[in-house]
């Protein structure tokens, strides 16, 4: 593919760059405890929490495993687990 003039890039193209493999800790949402408050989505620096109907899911393609969601979850519904390589 030819380079663009002036290195101008289409917006939103970072979705082609998966940061999930940066992760050594994996957040897992326990659907039983989740109160669907949406805090996990609010606080994710990587926009890696998706709302799917009335539930929240971690997008492991992008989650870097920082653990903010687990720490901030008021329902303690998110656990960080060691990523298995």
């Amino acid at each position: 593919m030819k380079i663009s003039s002036g290195a101008v890039v289409e917006g939103g193209t970072s979705l082609n760059y998966k940061t999930g493999n940066w992760r050594d800790q994996r957040p897992e949402i326990d659907p039983e405890s989740c109160k669907q408050c949406g805090i996990c989505q609010e606080v994710c620096p990587d926009d890696a929490v998706r709302q799917v109907r009335d539930r929240y899911e971690i997008d492991y393609n992008f989650c870097k495993g920082c653990g903010i969601c687990a720490y901030e979850c008021t329902a303690e519904a998110i656990r960080m687990k060691n990523e298995e390589k």
Binding site: S14, Y17, K18, D46, D47, F62, C66
Partner: peptide, 10 residues
Amino acid sequence: FVSGHRACHG
């Protein structure tokens, strides 16, 4: 401001 940016963890 979508996913796939390369900021550090957290």
